[in-house]
């Protein structure tokens, strides 16, 4: 009886598929990015992952010398550079660094706005006074604020990868994407038209090309710790820094997580024996 039912159901399903297949058009839509991000080894990946302080410092340097000329990072404050689990600046260094930037404050008692040096509690300065100014200076494109970019970009992993990701966490899609994008610029292949004022990059998530010119090059930023001054190294370091900017409490989260998980696992073990003891002698 059951087998017969299943056969009928299968036949009905096959007929349905055949019917709709004739209606379905076989048009494929192009999925961006054309090339999926390259997976990197990140110090902050996995259960025991932590940020690499030296890498965050180098990343900040790249951000400051290169990215910050067009991109804002308005959710991050100077004092965060001295926070635990961050680039590990000293409080004094933060004070000095912040004071090199000015901010408009006021009004004062005379009712006038004035400029003062930034304090550790002030956010990173934005390169443009407003979005329209940013667009006007960048050929109509708005350079996004980078505070959250590492969590705001993730390339679809597709089935079945997203299922595996559930059991073995892959939360570094953002930095992988950013590093791939920054090093992914190339000459457009023959026959590909790139709109005026944009640059071909098969790693871009939203089309074949973007308005941002290739920002990195070898020896562009000077590292003091002897790390190789290559385009790839810059890209990796700044991606790590952007992950920290988006998720400044990652270290604390993973540290607390380990304690909580261990506690819960031991507690569950005890409860298992409690349950067994309670139910002993009671067939169920």
């Amino acid at each position: 009886m059951t087998a017969k039912m299943i056969r009928w159901a299968a036949a009905a399903l096959a007929a349905g598929i055949a019917l709709t297949a004739t209606i379905a058009s076989a048009e494929e839509t192009v999925e961006y990015p054309l090339i999926k991000p390259t997976r990197q080894e990140w110090s902050f990946a996995g259960i025991f992952g932590r940020y690499d302080q030296a890498q965050l410092q180098r990343g900040y340097q790249v951000y400051k010398d290169v990215c910050s000329s067009c991109h804002a990072m308005s959710y991050v404050k100077f004092r965060n550079l001295a926070d635990e689990g961050g680039p590990g600046f000293t409080e004094d260094a933060v004070k000095v660094l912040a004071a090199t930037y000015a901010i408009e404050a006021g009004p004062n008692d005379a009712g006038e706005m004035f400029e003062r040096p930034r304090l550790p509690s002030d956010p990173f300065p934005s390169p443009f006074p407003n979005d329209n100014a940013a667009r006007a200076a960048n050929g109509g494109a708005l350079p996004p604020d980078l505070s959250l970019i590492a969590k705001a970009r993730a390339v679809h992993r597709g089935f079945p990868w997203f299922v595996f990701d559930m059991f073995w966490p892959y939360q570094e899609q953002g930095p992988d994407y950013i590093a791939s994008l920054l090093t992914g610029y190339q000459d457009p292949p023959e026959g590909v038209e790139v709109p005026e004022g944009t640059y071909y990059n098969p790693h871009f998530i939203n089309g074949v090309s973007l308005r941002m010119p290739p920002p990195l090059d070898d020896d562009l930023v000077e590292y003091s710790d002897g790390t190789p001054q290559t385009k790839e190294q810059y890209a990796t370091d700044v991606s790590a820094f952007l992950m920290w900017a988006a998720e400044p409490h990652l270290d604390a989260r993973k540290e607390l997580g380990l304690k909580v998980m261990l506690y819960l696992i031991i507690f569950a073990g005890i409860l298992y024996f409690v349950k067994r003891q309670v139910w002993r002698g009671t067939p169920h």
Partner: peptide, 27 residues
């Protein structure tokens, strides 16, 4: 009887919950 079983499974569920909160909160 039911309470001992409920509490055990609540804690097991919390482990599953914690896995997401601590290791892949944005998944």
């Amino acid at each position: 009887y039911a309470t001992s079983k409920d509490v055990l499974w609540i804690v097991l569920f919390m482990i599953f919950y914690g896995w997401f909160v601590f290791y892949q909160p944005n998944f």
